[in-house]
Design a protein around this nucleic acid. Structure first.
Length: 372
DNA sequence: GGGTCCAAGGGACGGATGTA
DNA sequence: TACATCCGTCCCTTGGACCC
C-alpha cells in the first residue's frame, strides 16, 4: 500500500495507518524520560539520580547469573508474579560472544494512541497499560555462547503502582485453562477453580479472569479442538442444545435459536412448579422446617416479582398479537421483532411488605407442604 | 567497541463493538 | 447477553545514531 503523502510503500493497511501517525501527524514524537513522581523531563541516564536526589527513592540494582536460559525464564516468571509486573523485550544486540537482551517494565513508555480524527473506536475503558512515563525497573540480560545468562536487574519501579488489570493473563494459566476447556470441564467450573486457586491472601491476575477471557482462550485453540468445546456463555447461562433440550433456560425461551421450541406458558409453569416442589422437599429433608420457612420468606418477593413480570408479559404478548391481527401482518423480521422488545423496567424494589405472599401463591405453597 | 536509546515496520493478541 | 469480528495496541526485531 502506498502512502499518499510521501509515496512510501507499506505492506498492509495497519502499517500504512501507523506510518501516517508517525510522519504525517503532529504527534510524531517518541516519549523522553519524564519523572513519574514530579513530571519533570530528565534524560534517561539522569532519571535514577533525579529520583534519588529529589524524591529520596533509591533505585536498587542486583547482578545475578543463571546456568541456562530456562533458569532465567523461570526466575523472570517468579519475579513477575511476585512484583505484579511484566517485562517485555525492548531491544536486542548480538555480537560474537553474547546476545544482550534489554527487558523493560511493560508499563514504561507511551501508548501509540491514534488521533481523534482517525479513531474508529473509543479508547480502552481501563486505559492503556502504558503510563506515558519511564519506569526504572528493567533487566539487562547477557546470553553467552556457552548457554549461561548474566543479568543486571533493577527491581525499583517508578511512575506507577502494581495494577493487576494492566497485566496479561500468565501463559501458564492460559495453558491450564485451555487444557480444562479441552477436557470439556464447564466454563463456570473453570472460572470458579481459577478464581479460587490462589493459596495466598494476595490477589493475583488470574483471579480477575472473565468469561470473555475464556472465550479468547477458546478461540486461540486449534479449529478442531475449538469445535469440540461448547461455546462459552451459552453454557454459563442456558444450555440450549440438541443433546440437552430439557435444560433450556425458560426465561430465554423466546430468543433461543438452536433447537427452539414454542413458548408454552402452561408447560413451563408446570416445570417450575415441579422444580420448586423438588427443592422444597430437599430443604425440609436436610435442613428442617425452620430453614424451610426462612426460604419461603426469602422467596416471597421473588415469586411476587415473577408473577408481576409474568402478567405484564402476557399483557404485552396479547397486545402485540391483537395488533398483528388488526394489521393482517405476520412478519418475523427485525421491525416486528423489535416491536416485541420488552420495555425497560426499573430494578425490583423489595420492601418489608413484599414478604407477604398473595393468596394464590400461598395456596401453591400450601399444596406443596401437603405433598411433603 | 560496548552500551543505550530511538525509529520503523511485521505480526499477533485481545478487548471493544456491532449484531442477532 | 452471547458471540464473531474488527482494529487498536503491544511485542519483537533490525538497524542507525549517539555517547563514553
Amino acid at each position: 500500500m502506498k502512502c499518499s503523502e510521501c509515496d512510501t510503500v507499506l505492506a498492509n493497511e495497519n502499517s500504512l495507518k501507523r506510518h501516517n501517525r508517525s510522519f504525517h501527524t503532529s504527534t510524531a514524537s517518541f516519549p523522553s524520560s519524564i519523572c513519574g513522581v514530579c513530571d519533570e523531563r530528565v534524560s534517561s541516564k539522569e532519571l535514577e539520580v533525579h529520583l534519588s536526589k529529589k524524591h529520596g527513592i533509591s533505585v536498587e540494582h542486583e547482578k545475578l547469573s543463571f546456568v541456562d536460559a530456562d533458569a532465567f525464564e523461570e526466575w523472570r516468571r517468579n519475579v513477575e508474579t511476585e512484583h505484579k509486573a511484566k517485562y517485555i523485550r525492548f531491544s536486542t544486540r548480538k555480537n560474537s560472544e553474547k546476545t544482550i537482551v534489554y527487558f523493560t517494565c511493560n508499563r514504561s513508555g507511551e501508548a501509540r494512541v491514534v488521533s481523534q480524527d482517525s479513531r474508529k473506536r473509543r479508547p480502552k475503558l481501563k486505559g492503556s497499560r502504558k503510563t506515558g512515563r519511564k519506569c526504572t525497573s528493567r533487566i539487562t540480560a547477557n546470553f553467552f555462547a556457552d548457554g549461561t545468562v548474566a543479568i543486571d536487574f533493577c527491581r525499583t519501579h517508578s511512575g506507577h503502582t502494581a495494577e493487576l488489570e494492566h497485566l496479561p493473563i500468565p501463559s501458564q494459566v492460559k495453558q491450564e485453562v485451555a487444557a480444562k476447556l479441552a477436557s470439556k470441564i464447564p466454563a463456570s467450573e473453570i472460572l470458579e477453580q481459577v478464581r479460587t486457586s490462589a493459596n495466598t491472601n494476595e490477589l493475583r491476575r488470574e483471579q480477575l479472569i472473565t468469561t470473555q477471557d475464556l472465550r479468547n482462550i477458546r478461540k486461540s485453540l486449534g479449529n478442531e479442538l475449538q469445535a469440540s468445546i461448547e461455546p462459552i456463555g451459552t453454557e454459563l447461562t442456558n444450555s440450549c442444545n440438541a443433546e440437552n433440550p430439557e435444560s433450556q433456560d425458560l426465561s430465554n425461551g423466546l430468543r433461543c435459536e438452536n433447537n427452539a421450541r414454542p413458548f408454552d406458558l402452561d408447560e413451563d409453569k408446570k416445570k417450575i412448579h415441579d422444580m420448586i416442589s423438588s427443592i422444597m422437599k430437599d430443604i425440609k429433608t436436610h435442613h428442617g422446617s425452620n430453614a424451610f420457612i426462612d426460604i419461603l420468606n426469602y422467596a416471597g418477593p421473588i415469586v411476587r416479582a415473577a408473577e408481576d413480570h409474568g402478567s405484564r408479559m402476557n399483557e404485552l404478548v396479547s397486545q402485540t398479537e391483537n395488533k398483528d391481527i388488526d394489521n393482517q401482518r405476520i412478519s418475523p423480521d427485525k421491525e416486528s421483532a423489535s416491536s416485541r422488545t420488552m420495555p425497560s423496567r426499573s430494578p425490583i424494589e423489595v420492601s418489608e411488605e413484599a414478604i407477604h405472599l398473595n393468596p394464590e401463591t400461598e395456596n401453591v405453597i400450601e399444596e406443596d407442604l401437603n405433598v411433603l
